[in-house]
Amino acid sequence: MASVPDITDTERWVIQTTLRERYGREPAYQLADADIRLHAADRELTTCPVFFWQADDGCSFVLFKTGEQHYRCQFFYKPYKQMGTGIEEYDDLAECAVAILQAQADYAAEQRGDLPSAGP
């Protein structure tokens, strides 16, 4: 089983810059590892490096590095209800980060009643 490469300085810079633009201040994020299935049929878990941060409204964000230039993302307010962008994997970290921030902003606006519900 191939290991997932660690997060690079360039990837850190991308996240710092994207979060600074979104929140208007120096971002506070953590680096961690998560054990996930890279493919639905996998029986074994693969350790992947992740970026993790929390927004002021209590929303948590996780961006997983799943390979060389491969990323997944999700956000959640409660661990049992995880949400994403509808795209399983990105090949561009900036696109992944912007997409998850936009998905969360849309979700929050919908919850406030600022956007019509996308559901049935």
Rank of each mutant, 00 (worst) to 15 (best):
R72M: 12
K81D: 11
L93F: 07
Q74A: 09
P49F: 10
K78E: 14
L93Y: 04
I87Y: 04
C48L: 09
A55I: 09
E110L: 03
H70W: 06
T47S: 15
Q54A: 13
L93W: 04
E88F: 04
Y77S: 00
C73M: 09
A103L: 08
P79N: 01
I100T: 11
Q102D: 15
D106L: 15
M83A: 03
C73H: 01
Y71C: 02
T46H: 12
H39G: 00
P79R: 07
F61V: 04
C73F: 03
E95C: 01
F64H: 09
A40M: 09
D56V: 07
R43M: 13
P79A: 08
T47P: 00
E89D: 08
E110K: 06
K81T: 05
D91C: 13
A105C: 03
K65T: 08
F64E: 04
Y77A: 02
A99R: 00
A109P: 00
I87W: 02
F51A: 11
L93H: 02
Y107L: 04
A103R: 07
L63S: 01
T85N: 04
F61G: 00
Q111Y: 05
L63M: 13
S60H: 06
E89K: 10
D56W: 02
C59V: 14
L63A: 10
W53T: 09
L101D: 03
K78V: 15
W53A: 12
F61L: 05
Y77I: 05
L101T: 02
R72S: 05
M83W: 06
Y80L: 14
L63R: 01
A108M: 10
Y71A: 00
H70R: 15
G67S: 12
C96V: 05
A105Q: 10
I87F: 05
V98S: 06
V62H: 00
W53N: 10
L45R: 13
C48F: 11
P49K: 07
L101C: 06
Q102K: 14
A94Q: 12
T66P: 01
Q111D: 11
A41N: 08
E110F: 01
C48G: 06
Q104I: 03
A94S: 06
L63Y: 01
E89S: 12
A40C: 02
L101F: 01
A55W: 06
I87D: 02
Q69I: 06
P49D: 08
L45M: 14
C59F: 07
Y77G: 06
I100H: 00
L45W: 09
Q111E: 14
M83I: 04
F52A: 11
A99M: 03
F51K: 06
D42R: 04
R72V: 10
A108Q: 07
Y77Q: 07
R72E: 07
E44V: 14
T85M: 08
R72I: 10
Q82W: 02
V98I: 15
E110Y: 05
I100V: 15
A108H: 02
A41C: 06
A40L: 13
Y80I: 15
P49E: 09
C73N: 09
Q102T: 15
Q74T: 08
Q111C: 13
R72C: 05
M83E: 11
E44K: 13
A109I: 04
C59W: 03
Q104D: 11
E110C: 10
Y107D: 10
A109L: 12
K65H: 05
A41H: 09
Y77D: 06
L101E: 07
